[in-house]
Amino acid sequence: MTIHTLDKAVAGLLILFGGWLIWTGLDYGIMQGTTPGAGLFPLIMGIAIVVLSAINLFRAVTNLETLSAGMSRREIIKAAGVVVVLIVSLLLIPVLGMTLATLGAMVVIGLLLRTDPSRAFLVRLAAVSLLTPIICWWLFDGLLGVPVPVGPLGF
C-alpha cells in the first residue's frame, strides 16, 4: 500500500467517523432546554470532519496533495513489532508484574532494533533491561507511592 492509498483510505475513514459523530451527537441531544446539550459539540465536530475530509479525499484522488516519502517496509515491520511487543507485555503485566513484563519487553525491543547484536551489545542490553525496571520500581513504588502491579514473586 503506498502512502497515497493510505491517505485516501484515512480520509475515507474520517468521513465515516465524522458521520458517526453526527449520529451520536444527535442521539446525545442538541439542545437541553435553552442551552446547548451534550450532543451539540460532537455534532459540529462531526460535520467539520466530514466536510474537511471530503475535501482531503478529493485532493488525494485528484493528486493535488503531495506527501513526502512514507516508511520503508523494514521501518514499518520494526515499528509494528515494537507496538506488538508493548501490547503483549502490557497484557502480561497482571500476570508477571510490571517489573518483569517491562524487563522482557526491553530485551525483545532491543533485539528488534539491532538485528545483528554483538556480544558487547547483548551484555549492555541485559544490564539496562535488568536495571531500568528495578530502578523504576524503586522510584515509583518505593519513593512515589504508586501501587505498581506486582507478580507472583512480589515485585
Binding site: L143, L144, G154
Partner: peptide, 17 residues
C-alpha cells in the same frame, strides 16, 4: 519519605498475609 515507604511495604505485607 517514611510514610510512603511504609505504605508500600505495608501493602506487600498485607498481600502476603
Amino acid at each position: 519519605m517514611t510514610k510512603t515507604a511504609s505504605t508500600s511495604f505495608g501493602r506487600l505485607r498485607t498481600a502476603g498475609v
